[in-house]
Design a protein around this nucleic acid. Structure first.
Lengths: 233, 233
DNA sequence: TGGATTTCTTGATCTGAATCAAGGACGATC
DNA sequence: GATCGTCCTTGATTCAGATCAAGAAATCCA
């Protein structure tokens, strides 16, 4: 890698744990790579060869059953970490939902570097704990929420996560944003079919809770109502 | 704590990362405590005050919606770690499903100790990554599997996790075991109602796939068939 | 510019699991 | 060993969301 110090996610990715000199060493291990929309970086069940930081773009983490049923188990944003460190196999696939830029490491070299840099491992631990919290929150959604509640929860979550800028501190909930997911993918995140997703969105629009300027764009018109509908704890 | 070196989970809990002298220091920070079945140690939304290692017994990790709907998002076994380190609030509750023995630490003192003991944090990271894998596996179950598939998956998972003895290496799948969950709790893990759980179990029994000697006991009579029914990847 | 393709919406119908409603079996207590 | 309370099973019915089936609206590209 040329120059990590100039990286846009330098202060928000796990690299923020490192001093300039350490960062340079890590930089030697990684390479910047562009991936295009639809490309799969890691395949479920394969050996865990690579891990990466996301510089730009959005990716999905998914698991599936042999007959083709697929569940999206995570959506990854810039500054997030992807891949399965410290494990032989990757239990899930990682696929780009948009064109994306990554900073890729071989898992083995990343593992070795991390083991010698406790501050980096600490950041990774914090991120993994947050990811686990999010996964469990989603288990509640998948196990117990109705279709309307699921859609409302997803829209609010997206408005928050898309609003977290690279500058980690600032975070503003967006009231208008482009969904990084198509209808099918929304269904795969929510455990619903594409038709149910479409119907629920139409109803929220008809009720004046949201606007749908075009296929991908959502505007939140009544956030309070959306929050009530989301059945938050 | 009196003597960690004699602890039954000394070599399988995260403490296995520590040398004898470090273990003694950690031991000073913790206290052994018995909790009885039904007792809740951590409440969803409260400040994260304590973390603990499980010495014996089984506990549940759960999240709920204000109207009372509850999802069990984790089942915790001996040698596992509970609580939310490095975070202000606990997003979930932890409740004993059986009488249990714990080795409890105040979160702040545990956090401080862990930050100075990278090997311990590394173990914790590994465990958290495994827990995340399990949570995602369960998201697939909750989002995409049928009632029969869910029950089959749970029975197989229980036969494996209950078969992991304290001596981390050895692990044998049990063909007869006592469920640590009642029917309602099975429903809360699987995103099903108690009636559906009961019906599915009755059907598996009628089909000769399992036996149900009494309320809590399960015997697996045709593991291959149960595996097929579980819709594993 | 105009078809072809993909993606999304809407309607009609079906179905798996939820809900409603009894009973039955077990364990505890006296 | 009768009585109570809890937990579990089974049956009848309902319903939310899946499935099946067209169309409509974007997007692609030739």
């Amino acid at each position: 890698m040329k120059d990590c110090s100039q990286c846009v996610v330098r202060n928000s990715a796990i690299c923020a744990a490192l001093m300039a000199d350490e960062l340079e060493v890590l930089g030697q291990l990684g390479r910047k790579q562009r991936v295009s929309k639809g490309q799969t970086l890691v395949w479920e069940g394969d050996d865990s060869i690579i891990v990466a930081n996301v510089i730009s773009g959005i990716l999905k983490v998914s698991m599936s059953i042999s007959d083709g049923r697929e569940q999206i188990v995570g959506v990854v944003f810039p500054a997030d970490f992807i891949g399965r460190p410290f494990g032989q196999k990757s239990p899930y696939s990682v696929t780009a939902l948009s064109d994306a830029e990554l900073c890729i490491f071989s898992r083995s070299s990343f593992d070795a570097f991390a083991r010698n840099h406790p501050a980096l491992e600490h950041k990774l631990l914090q991120r993994t704990l947050e990811e686990l919290d999010r996964a469990r929150e989603w288990m509640l959604l998948l196990g117990k929420k109705t279709a309307t509640e699921r859609i409302a929860t997803l829209l609010l979550e997206m408005s928050i996560r898309l609003g977290e800028t690279g500058c980690s501190v600032e975070q503003n909930e967006l009231n208008e944003f482009a969904l990084p997911l198509d209808r099918q993918q929304m269904g795969d995140v929510l455990g619903l079919t594409i038709e149910t997703v479409s119907r629920q969105l139409s109803r929220l629009k008809a009720d004046g809770v949201i606007g749908l300027p075009d296929r991908r764009m959502v505007s939140i018109q009544d956030r309070r109502r959306l929050q009530d509908l989301s059945a938050a704890a």
